[in-house]
Design a protein around this nucleic acid. Structure first.
Length: 292
DNA sequence: CGGATTTGACCTGCGC
DNA sequence: GCGCAGGTCAAATCCG
């Protein structure tokens, strides 16, 4: 398993001109490691390096690597939803966006359906930004706070485990994800998110939306884990640690517009800079990805 | 009864 | 052009 160190350019992200990254992160959740070991350490130049993020290069390159930067960038800009131009996202701005985009999205969705069969071969279907990651988990469908509707399941070639397809149930949201078990290790669940949510996480309160992406310490996560909405009902003690790690990961992804489950008002923000900037800066502030 | 899931059919892209 | 695999649709079915 190859490990890489990366920097990500938050300025590009906030202006919507960011390249999309598809990170396949393999977490050995049974191994005790510090939060910062998992999510990176801050350098002197105000950037984070994901020193301990083992990256499956093959997976991360296939979707967005190489020319993926161009195509995914275009698809982002074509979306009616503007990316967070501010580093602070709020429920009110989200709501405004929702109101503004609702009809457009619905029309687009309808059009997509109608035109689906008419897509020409020279007009390649452009994918949304994708993020794939692996998590050791006993359950296939990881709770992330959003509501999903399963719309398909397919057998995967050379794998005894099927791939399940889910779509966000929100009418104005076209985010999809598919879930499958790793071919190499059936205890690992591979979850791939496609698209960006256009609405707040339903699990979070209204006020919490402004804290999307706030840094969560392991301690804070553990404190909240016992009070997740409903999740403690099925979570076995042996799953506790895995679940905690998933929360950390989900919270990280939430700052990129991907799902998060942790009720944000419960999070402890120990870094003043995080409060100022929110979003990705928690984890990956203003410096470009740079492979070493 | 309405929403969620299942599942077979169909569409699309890609390699040969 | 053909076959294969991934992805999606939608009717049937399930379930609370």
């Amino acid at each position: 398993m190859e490990k890489k160190s990366m920097n990500i350019n938050m300025d590009d992200y906030s202006t919507g001109s960011f390249p999309t990254y598809s990170l396949t992160n393999m977490f050995d959740l049974s191994e005790e490691r510090s939060f910062m070991e998992l999510l990176g350490v801050q350098n002197m130049n105000n950037s984070y390096s994901f020193l301990d993020f083992p990256v499956d290069v093959k997976e991360s390159i296939t979707e967005n690597g190489g020319n993926g930067k161009e195509s995914s960038l275009n698809s982002q800009q074509q979306q009616p939803v503007t990316p967070n131009s501010s580093s602070i996202s709020s429920a009110s701005s989200e709501a405004l966006n929702d109101e503004h985009n609702k009809t457009v999205d619905q029309a687009d969705h309808h059009l997509q359906k109608q035109l689906k069969a008419k897509k020409t071969t020279n007009q390649k279907r452009q994918r949304e930004a994708r993020i794939a990651f692996m998590t050791k988990s006993e359950v296939d469908h990881l709770e992330d706070g959003y509501r999903w509707r399963k719309y398909g399941q397919k057998a995967v070639k050379n794998s005894p485990f099927p791939r399940s397809y889910y779509r966000c149930t929100s009418v104005s949201c076209n985010v999809k994800k598919h879930v499958e078990r790793s071919l190499n290790d059936q205890t690992i669940v591979v979850t791939t998110y496609e698209g960006k949510h256009t609405h707040p996480n339903p699990v979070m309160g209204r006020s919490s939306a402004s804290h999307v992406g706030s840094l969560v310490s392991p301690l804070a996560a553990e404190c909240t884990t016992t009070n997740f909405g409903g999740s403690e009902n099925y979570m076995m003690p042996s799953q506790y640690y895995n679940h905690h790690r998933q929360q950390v990961l989900f919270n990280t992804l939430s700052s990129m517009g991907f799902p998060s489950k942790i009720p944000q008002e419960r999070l402890v923000c120990s870094n003043p800079r995080v409060m100022d900037h929110g979003l990705l800066q928690d984890v990956v502030p203003s410096n470009m990805f740079k492979e070493e």
